[in-house]
């Protein structure tokens, strides 16, 4: 059994990590810290874990050595603590944004901060198995991915791998549920403001753009494609739909697109190509993915030409955070990637 500690277990991402680990057959959850909730039972903040994981939150000082440490503290904090945290476990997975970007210069650009330990950035493998499976197998540190970036990357990866699209004029339109904003509240998350909303909250400059450009660059001759991402808050608690508009490179047919997606994902355990001519939800829809680690991708070729629309749908807290982290942990620890992650989602919900 792997002993896994969780640093910062009181937020939504921490709660989701704990939910998955609670039934993981090869994991024993050790210390779960929360600086503001030390001494309280986990189920006070994660009521779904009542009777499933009967632990109490501990202060950070009680963190001991474990095989794996899941770091679920807010952005900006993990980068300060990481030199010490790397001593606390054989393998560290940071679910914050603090170790996702490989180029230290990207942190001032996209996060407005200078990374205090840029020497750590090359040590972390971007924790999306579909992008870095082999590197993860030998990694001692991995970074959880950004949720919007995951949906967009999964949607567009086959198109770049197959060389079917131009590297500019790429528009990524993201709709996202409220849980992605985290557990901290502000006036815009107050129910009368957040309910029934379709709100453009980051029309330009969203931070996850950097991850999309970084992760697609290896499939674009090493050059970062230009991604223009706009994010919208919509009336869901969980879920992301990324709708990506790209220009085809030369003449592209439906069968070319099918081949590209089959080649990319035919053997992938957690990505499904959804492009159906019949049945319910004929293109990816996060509604059927809630709680699951699956990512659904699909596409449509504009019959007028000059546009491919690619879709990526995930549960932001699972495939976009905790699920990818556990899949990365499985690979890093020599376990089958699917272990603990088989839940197929609910329907109807």
């Amino acid at each position: 059994m792997l002993r896994v500690n969780v640093l910062g277990g009181s937020g939504y991402t921490g709660g989701e990590v704990l939910r998955i680990l609670a039934t993981h057959p090869m994991v024993e959850v050790g210390i779960v810290t929360s600086s503001s909730n030390a001494g309280k039972p986990l189920h006070q903040l994660h009521p779904n874990l009542r009777g499933v994981l009967d632990l109490t939150f501990s202060p950070r000082e009680r963190l001991d050595h474990a095989e794996v440490l899941m770091v679920c503290v807010p952005h900006g904090r993990a980068m300060e603590m990481m030199p010490q945290l790397l001593q606390n476990a054989d393998k560290v997975i940071d679910l914050s944004a603090d170790h996702r970007l490989r180029d230290p210069a990207d942190y001032p650009t996209w996060y407005g901060i200078t990374h205090p330990h840029p020497e750590n950035l090359q040590r972390f493998v971007y924790g999306v198995p579909e992008l870095h499976r082999e590197q993860l197998r030998s990694a001692t540190a991995a970074s959880g991915p950004g949720c919007m970036a995951t949906a967009a990357n999964l949607a567009m990866l086959p198109l770049f791998k197959a060389g079917l699209v131009e590297e500019r004029h790429i528009i990524v339109d993201v709709k996202i549920g409220s849980s992605a904003a985290g557990v901290e509240v502000n006036i815009s998350t107050h129910h009368p403001e957040r309910a029934n909303v379709v709100r453009a909250y980051a029309p330009t400059g969203h931070r996850h753009t950097a991850e999309v450009e970084q992760e697609l660059a290896p499939y674009n001759g090493g050059r970062k494609p230009r991604i223009d991402l706009s994010a919208h808050a919509v009336d869901m608690v969980r879920g992301i739909l990324a709708t990506c508009h790209l220009r085809p490179r030369g003449e592209v047919t439906d069968k070319d697109l099918w081949k590209a997606y089959r080649d990319a994902y035919g053997a992938e355990p957690f990505v499904r190509v959804v492009n159906q001519k019949a049945g319910l939800h004929q293109l990816p829809n996060p509604k059927v993915l809630l709680g699951s680690n699956f990512g659904d991708v699909g596409f449509q070729l504009d019959p007028r030409g000059e546009r491919i629309v690619a879709f990526g749908a995930i549960d932001n807290l699972v495939k976009g955070a905790a699920g990818s982290a556990v899949a990365s942990m499985n690979l890093m620890c020599g376990l089958p990637e699917r272990t603990g992650l088989e839940f197929p989602g609910l329907h109807p919900v």
């Binding site: 099918w258 492009n275 001519k277 019949a278 004929q282």
Partner: peptide, 9 residues
């Protein structure tokens, strides 16, 4: 017959 990939009849 129905295609299992795209659902076409």
């Amino acid at each position: 017959i129905t295609c299992g990939d795209c659902g076409a009849d």
